[in-house]
C-alpha cells in the first residue's frame, strides 16, 4: 500500500509540475489576437490543476473525511461541504493575495509566510473546537440512546471555515502571477476554476468517508456512537497536531 501511495504521489507531483509549467507559459502567451481562446484554455487547465492539486497532501481532506466518519450524511452533503471549503479557499486566497500585494507590495513573500502562519493557527484552533463539539454531540446522543446524531448545519460551516480559511499557496501563486502580468480578471477566474476543481476532489474524500461510515455503521449497529467519538477525537488530534506544527515553524 505504501508503494502504491508513493507511485500515486509521484504521478500527482509530475502532473502538477507539467500543468504548472503549462499554465505559466500559456498565460505569458496571451495577446490581443488570442486572448479569449487562450484565457478559456487557461481556465480549463486551472480546473484540472485544482483537481490534481487537492489530490495531493492537504486541503482539509482528512478533516472532511473524519467529519463524515463521525456524522451520518448523504452524498449531497459531501458535495456541499467540498464546495463550501473551496469557495472559502478561493475567497481567502484572493483576499490575501490582492490585500497583501497592494498593502504590502514589497517584502511580499515574507509577509505572506507570516500571514499564512497566523491563518493556519486560527484554522487549527477552529479544528480543535470542531473536534470537541463532535465528541460532545456523540456523547449526548449516546446518553439519550439515539441512533443518529442530529446533523447540525452549524458544525458543517465550522468544518468548512476551518479547512478553507488557510489560503492555498497554489491558488495564490496563480493569482499573483496574473497580477504581475496585469491579467487581473483572468487571475480571479483562474482562482475560481481552480477552487472548483479542488472542491470536487475534497467532495470525493467526503463521499469515500460516508461509504466507509455506512459499512462500519451497519457493523457497529447500536454502537455507532463509538465511531462518531473516534471521528471527533481524530479531528481534535488533527487540530492539535496542526497547531503545534505551525508553532514550530
Amino acid at each position: 500500500m505504501i508503494e502504491f501511495y508513493n507511485q500515486l504521489l509521484k504521478q500527482i507531483v509530475m502532473l502538477q509540475y507539467q500543468l504548472n509549467s503549462y499554465i505559466s507559459t500559456t498565460i505569458r502567451s496571451i495577446n490581443d489576437d488570442n486572448s479569449f481562446s487562450t484565457s478559456l484554455l487557461i481556465l480549463v487547465i486551472a480546473f484540472l490543476y485544482g483537481l490534481i492539486h487537492a489530490a495531493g497532501p492537504g486541503h482539509g481532506k482528512a478533516l472532511v473525511a473524519f467529519y463524515f466518519t463521525s456524522n451520518k450524511s448523504d452524498y449531497k452533503k459531501a458535495f456541499k461541504m467540498g464546495y463550501m471549503i473551496s469557495i472559502i479557499h478561493a475567497i481567502s486566497a484572493l483576499v490575501f493575495t490582492f490585500g497583501i500585494f497592494y498593502i504590502l507590495k514589497t517584502m511580499f513573500r515574507r509577509n505572506f509566510n507570516e500571514m499564512s502562519g497566523i491563518a493556519m493557527q486560527i484554522s487549527a484552533v477552529m479544528i480543535i473546537f470542531v473536534g470537541l463539539y463532535l465528541i460532545y454531540e456523540a456523547y449526548k446522543s449516546k446518553k439519550i440512546k439515539e441512533q443518529e446524531i442530529k446533523q447540525s448545519t452549524k458544525s458543517e460551516y465550522a468544518v468548512a471555515i476551518s479547512a478553507g480559511i488557510v489560503p492555498c499557496p497554489g491558488v495564490m501563486t496563480i493569482v499573483l502571477f496574473c497580477i504581475v502580468l496585469k491579467q487581473y480578471l483572468l487571475g480571479i477566474l483562474a482562482a475560481i476554476t481552480m477552487s472548483i476543481g479542488m472542491g470536487l476532489t475534497i467532495s470525493v474524500a467526503g463521499i469515500l468517508s460516508i461509504l466507509f461510515n455506512k459499512k462500519a455503521g451497519n457493523f457497529l449497529d447500536s454502537k455507532g456512537y463509538i465511531l462518531e467519538i473516534i471521528g471527533g477525537l481524530l479531528i481534535l488530534t488533527l487540530g492539535v497536531f496542526l497547531f503545534t506544527s505551525v508553532g514550530h515553524k
Binding site: Y17, H53, P57, G58, K61, A62, L234, L238, F241, L242
Partner: peptide
C-alpha cells in the same frame, strides 16, 4: 489494519504538497 494505515496516510497528507518546483 487498512483503516489504521489510511488514517496515518491522511494525517501525513494533511500537511503540505508541492507549491514550488525546482
Amino acid at each position: 489494519m487498512k483503516i489504521i494505515i489510511s488514517i496515518i496516510l491522511l494525517f501525513n497528507i494533511l500537511y503540505a504538497h508541492p507549491h514550488t518546483f525546482i
